[in-house]
Amino acid sequence: MIELSHLTKVYGDTAVVNDVNMEIEAGTITVIVGTSGSGKSTLLRMVNRLVEPTEGRVFLEGNDVSTMPPHELRRSIGYAIQNHGLFPHWTVARNIATVPMLLGWDRRKVDARVEELMELFQLDHAQFANRYPHELSGGQQQRVGVARAMAAKPALLLMDEPFGALDPIIRSKAQTDLKAIQRRTGTTILLVTHDMAEAVHLGDRIAVMDGGLLKQYAPAADILARPADAFVDDLIGSADRPFRYLTLGRVRAAVEPGVAEGAPLAADASLYEGLGELLWSGRDAAPVIDDAGAPLGRVSLVGIAERAARPK
């Protein structure tokens, strides 16, 4: 649904984005990961024309975005950034209502949408609707920022380091929540980060950028298994690679017949969590149960280790 074609941006003598071609499937989360100065934010900002490309085109559902008036284009695309960019002089409710109001929705529809979103993002309407941004915690501000970006039900949501300002615990919850919300709404998300763990956690597909070039664009597992070059390899971190790889798999996939002692593992837990539990409790194996609590078999250290090895 989104196609980036030969996208290039030159500032002075440097091409900060250099001939990038990408196709992004609707309803998925695509994460662009890279170091600072890799051109990842510029690439993102060319999609909603906050930056105009020097060369190349962006197509949304087959339409060239350069032919649409910028403000109309942007009203159809959600946008959330690291420092949330909430309007400090407006209440939470008014902030969330920004784009619906710009689109001229009627009052009741706007109010209903604001309430719906606040519930979706676990912000108590009665408590928070009339507060000002500076009265919220960092995590709450960030949620309002994302809720605002999704207010007019955009098919596409652009996010630039949306969790960068949060502390690790809140960040991890925010990532999990975002993924759950995305699965419910089916919004296409294009997210920029410098954090490979976040990319692996969230991304259906990952695009690695360096020096303006798109180094690799593939599903997360492929990036981990077959990094295209030394840079991608570095970004993953060779010591972390097997563990990152395990975060992608579910315990369910490693279940073998048999029984084991001790507390059971949930089938939907990641292999990474399963490994941690086994190592910490000093067991070689643990029983596995499904959502309903029915036993499925067991998972063993050896079984997990096999799945952490480089795929053949």
Binding site: P70, L73, R74, Y79, I81, Q82, N83, H84, G85, L86
Partner: peptide
């Protein structure tokens, strides 16, 4: 950040 989001919101 605020000015940029204002543009980005359309």
């Amino acid at each position: 950040a605020v000015v940029e989001t204002a543009s980005a919101m359309g």
